[in-house]
Write a protein that binds this DNA or RNA. Structure first.
Lengths: 251, 251
DNA sequence: CAGTGGTCTAGACCACTTT
DNA sequence: AAGTGGTCTAGACCACTGT
């Protein structure tokens, strides 16, 4: 007879662990509850800590868990629906939908952005930093690149503090009333500066939303927004039913 | 004087490694080129293999590298722009834009999907499996859930092979001409079956696109599509300039 | 078959938060 | 100071791909 186990399909330990933990989260834990620490969990399941961590990482990636150094691992709430496709929200400069201006500067954009803007290499543009909060939590950090040609009337007083300067550029851009936009979403990892604003560690998974704003047949501005992938579900709606959709399976 | 190094900011080794490798990829490697193997690279940089792998994982997550077991690590081409927001593409049933029907069945949807559809718990729906290819490569696997109420005229002959049955449901659905849709994007990890169709390992990072199709004030169908996060950049465009946008920084 | 990436272990130390 | 998650090591073996 030989080996009895046919079709054994050697599932990795961390994968099996993940499903076990996932089921346990559904049935035995409430949102916000703290799990036993990693060493304890590893011992309980009879695996090395690294293996246990591999399972936890996956669950965190799927938005099921939240881990904070020095604190512990907690059960994460369902992901927030965040509207990004809605033109009303998307237009830069429209105030108070969770976006807060942080800073502004004149700088040379990354080459990829410069290519989108159609500016020459080395040419400086206005760079506005914004942060977006939902339910008090930071969900996105954005860099908005505006060529000076797009805001010809702009004059920035010397010594103006950053947030005020940012508001000034945004207000100016609002008058432009862009007539179209274009968005792309891809997976990335948080740069150190973005990570700090999003209250995450560098390298944390983020959804990078690149938006092109068109005005008068030109690309008037480009925004690169990095959303926390663990806590956010980006919604693109004909109708803004953001909160209605629950987190989806696919784990 | 004490320690000379102030503001040392102890950057993790794998993080520093990642930037070093990233720069090397830009300057010294061509797309498709194979890197030295992991043991060799780890030795060259004087780190443990696990640490080297942590850096490679990040680069793979960002779409810079592609790793295949038994083969090696290669430099990945820029991400493909894949249109998902365009209604013309998005409508289920419109043929031949890269989508290929695979199979169809009658089954009970996951509870999250049932909630979106507004069907009773335990109620069966038509489930169509599709796969999307671009440039010959699989980029997405989709499950399309269609309540029987949405396609009242449907009659499925017994013993019809899967792909034909799928085409039948899609054709029926096409007649419905849904009048609106609603999309959400979130990060997930590939289930075993999706992973196989996407030619990836289970757990690989994917972008999960949930689409609701509306017809006559009801939710006529729900599609859950999982896109390969490493190779795809999802585009939501007023104009379909999918290929024009290069991959973005944010690494 | 040899060579590759994928999994796993049993430790150690570090950075951070809370008490 | 104690406890947490984050980083790192040096090894081992496994699963898969090519020849």
């Amino acid at each position: 007879m030989g080996t009895t186990q046919l079709e054994t399909a050697p599932e990795p330990k961390y994968w099996h662990l993940k499903t076990v933990l996932s089921d346990a989260l559904d049935s035995e834990f409430a949102v916000g509850e703290i799990l036993p620490n990693e060493r304890e969990l590893a011992a309980r399941f009879g695996v090395a800590r690294a293996t246990l961590r591999q399972a936890l990482e996956q669950l965190e990636l799927e938005g099921r868990l939240q881990r904070r150094r020095g604190v512990g691992t907690t059960v994460a709430p369902p992901r927030m629906g965040v509207a990004v496709g809605d033109s009303a929200h998307g237009r830069p400069g429209t105030a108070a939908d969770g976006w807060q201006p942080v800073d502004a500067d004149e700088a040379v954009p990354p080459t990829a952005v410069a290519r989108l803007l159609g500016t020459a290499a080395g040419e400086t543009v206005q760079v506005v930093r914004r942060i977006r909060k939902t339910h008090g939590q930071p969900v996105a950090a954005e860099l908005l690149y505006v060529p000076v040609e797009s805001v010809p009337g702009l004059s920035v007083p010397e010594g103006l503090p950053g947030a005020a300067r940012a508001r000034l550029v945004l207000r100016e851009l609002e008058d432009l009333r862009p007539d179209g936009q274009d968005q792309a979403v891809e997976l990335g990892s948080a740069r150190a500066d973005d990570a700090k604003q999003l209250d995450r560690l560098p390298g944390a998974p983020v959804l990078v939303v690149t938006t092109r704003y068109f005005a008068g047949g030109r690309t008037a501005a480009v925004a690169v927004a990095t959303y926390r992938a663990d806590t956010c579900r980006l919604t693109f709606g004909d109708n803004g039913a953001a909160e209605a959709v629950p987190a989806v399976l696919a784990g």
